[in-house]
């Protein structure tokens, strides 16, 4: 086996563009997923019972089935119910829903982690419901859920690779396509693995750094 990396140099612009796509999709999925997940968590915690139950079922479905099956259902099944999406929008939508389900569970645990006494104390000094959420619950929660959120977000980066199967032109798809064209599939996969590995390690360290900073504010209950 020869290990020739020359092919990658010839295709550098495409690889860089694909890496950009991966990062964009990741960012979009994480951001939208977090926002949606927050709404879901709020709905399950404070919404009317039917809504809470419905959201609970949807979350359970999304968390109980493989991401790939969800993507297939959306991308190949969508057109049958009038939802024809191109690969990238389909990928972002799929990733967002998947992420929202997991984020909402993390946030829900965060809501539960805020001591009831603190909420009662806020009510006593006359905070409104929204004020209580914004001034008391969210800041306390942020510290509690930070590690899990960081973990999930890193996991999401790795999940973007799955989007290659529904032909989203992200890094995994583009790199392996170049690899097989250049008869250097294994080399391409090695580089690909290296990229994700380095990215995940960097994000992991940044996450731990952020947790430490947050911990230093003294909010963390040890």
């Amino acid at each position: 086996m020869t290990f020739d990396l020359g092919f990658i140099a010839q295709h550098l612009p495409e690889v860089i563009e694909a890496a950009g796509t991966t990062l964009m999709i990741w960012a979009a999925g994480a951001f939208c997923g977090l926002a949606l997940g927050f709404l879901v968590a709020l709905g399950r915690r404070y919404g009317p019972a039917p809504l809470a139950v419905l959201l609970g079922v949807i979350v359970e479905l999304l968390r109980g089935t493989p991401f790939l099956v969800q993507l297939f259902l959306l991308y190949f099944g969508g057109p049958f119910i009038g939802l024809s999406l191109d690969p990238i929008p389909a990928g972002v939508l799929g990733l967002t829903c998947y992420a929202a389900a997991y984020y909402s569970e993390i946030l829900r645990a965060g809501f539960d982690g805020v001591p009831a006494g603190h909420v009662e104390a806020a009510a006593c000094v006359g905070f409104s419901g929204w004020q209580t959420i914004r001034r008391i619950i969210l800041p306390e929660m942020a510290v509690l859920v930070m590690p899990a959120l960081v973990n999930m977000t890193i996991l999401l980066l790795k999940e973007t690779a799955v989007l290659s199967i529904i032909t989203v032109p992200e890094l995994t798809m583009v790199t392996s396509a170049i690899g097989s064209e250049s008869y250097a599939f294994v080399e391409a996969l090695f580089l690909l693995a290296l990229f994700y590995w380095v990215m995940v390690e960097i994000c992991g360290h940044l996450g731990r750094f952020a947790e430490l900073r947050l911990a230093r504010t003294g909010l963390v209950a040890r």
Binding site: A161, T172, A193, Y196, W197, V200
Partner: peptide
Amino acid sequence: FFRGVPLLV
């Protein structure tokens, strides 16, 4: 490594 690289890859 095995936690850092997507399973698909």
